[in-house]
């Protein structure tokens, strides 16, 4: 057994709370976690997207959003 608790079980405990997702490419999302699957595709609501551009940081508000797991690097949360 690799560990007593699986990484995805921890994320599962975050459902309903705010999650900070850092993508592989200078892009971040903060939103309320609604759900996810085994590929770590993530569904968020009340989302803010942060983009780092040459003009500085750009914020975009999004409603219900599905993030493609293949671009996700890190998810940060509080338990």
């Amino acid at each position: 057994m690799a560990s007593q608790i699986l990484p995805l079980e921890l994320i599962d405990r975050c459902i309903g709370s705010r999650l900070w997702v850092i993508m592989k490419n200078e892009r971040e999302f903060v939103g309320t976690l609604l759900g996810f699957d085994d590929y770590v595709n993530i569904v968020l609501e009340d989302v803010i997207e942060y983009e780092n551009t040459a003009q500085g940081q750009k914020k975009t508000k999004l409603a219900h959003t599905l993030l493609n797991g293949s671009n996700i690097a890190i998810a940060s949360f509080r338990l």
């Binding site: 459902i15 609604l34 759900g35 996810f36 699957d37 595709n41 993530i42 569904v43 219900h64 599905l66």
Partner: peptide, 11 residues
């Protein structure tokens, strides 16, 4: 429930 599959069904 909010899973990706449900999101996609709903959208």
């Amino acid at each position: 429930t909010g899973s990706p599959t449900d999101f996609l069904k709903g959208v």
